[in-house]
């Protein structure tokens, strides 16, 4: 077990030399979690902490009977269908329809950056003369909830294209972020969600990284509303007294790129509810 953790830490260090591709990284993560949680089937990881927390799970299942995120899906559908001022709409930007969350995040060669779903939605708005939405709270969560709901069951399959070295660089950048300790409390994402996954910080069980991106946006009881993945990133950064970075800034987009690649093969199941 410790050996695997060391291998994973080495992954972080040797990242620069870039022999280990995303698929090797993912296999290493899965090997580690499988050793830690031998009875948890792979597909369960899409349920986050509830895959490994039987007590929390009971509450969660009860909540899911009357999903608190439902009104947000409906509001998002209205947004999707309502034309912009210029008469066009989201439909024109995304002709294949709203079941498209599995297409993101992806490497955009032209822009030379990782494009996430919230970013693509805002680029659509801006291209049509509309004001972009805020990235953490508010209406962006409605449209995201609708797209997520329509995309349920699609399988995550992030690719890091080989024909553009900048794509691998972005992936490596996200990976490095994940393994780097920061903040006054000196934690990396890996300290909590890799090294100590399954253990408790006070009453909170730490969830595995595999499955971290499947269920967004998430209705959190603590927030009393639906919030984005990048809002959660800032939360986890604040908790360790590190400066939270800009939602949809380059660091968090690259982090999302890496995290999503670690969940390749899992089904999308957003929106979801968390305590």
């Amino acid at each position: 077990m410790k050996k695997i953790l060391i291998t994973l830490a080495l992954l972080a260090i040797t990242a620069v030399t870039a022999q280990a591709g995303p698929e090797e990284d993912r296999m290493a993560f899965i090997k580690y979690y499988k050793a830690k949680f031998p009875s948890v089937p792979m597909e369960e990881y899409a349920n986050g902490v509830y895959a490994i927390d039987p007590i929390g799970r009971e509450n969660w299942e009860a909540i899911e009977e009357f999903p608190p995120y439902e009104p947000f899906i409906d509001a998002g559908q209205a947004m999707w269908e309502k034309p912009f001022a210029n008469g066009k709409g989201y439909k024109d930007c995304f002709p294949d329809g709203p079941a498209m969350a599995d297409k993101y995040p992806s490497w955009d060669k032209q822009q030379g950056m990782v494009v996430t779903l919230p970013l693509a939605l805002n680029q659509c708005l801006e291209a049509n003369g509309e004001k972009p939405l805020k990235y953490k709270k508010g209406p962006i969560n409605n449209i995201l909830a609708y797209v997520a709901f329509q995309s349920r069951g699609k399988v995550i399959n992030v690719e890091v294209p080989k024909d553009d070295p900048r794509a691998m660089a972005a992936y490596e950048d996200g990976k490095k972020f994940y393994f780097t300790r920061r903040g006054q409390l000196n934690f990396s994402c890996a300290s909590c969600h890799l090294q100590n996954a399954g253990l408790r910080v006070r009453t909170e069980i730490l969830s595995p990284t595999v499955g971290h991106v499947t269920g967004w946006p998430v209705y959190r009881s603590k927030w009393g509303t639906v919030g984005t993945l990048h809002r959660r990133f800032s939360g986890c950064n604040n908790n360790i007294r590190a400066k939270a970075l800009k939602a949809q800034g380059e660091e968090y987009r690259n982090l999302e790129y890496f995290l999503t690649a670690m969940s390749n093969g899992l089904e999308l199941n957003g929106p979801s509810a968390r305590k």
Partner: peptide
């Protein structure tokens, strides 16, 4: 310290 350690008779300890 209780975030990560059990201390006897103190509430909601973690176990990291």
């Amino acid at each position: 310290c209780l975030a990560c350690h059990l201390i006897e008779d103190e509430p909601t300890p973690g176990n990291v």
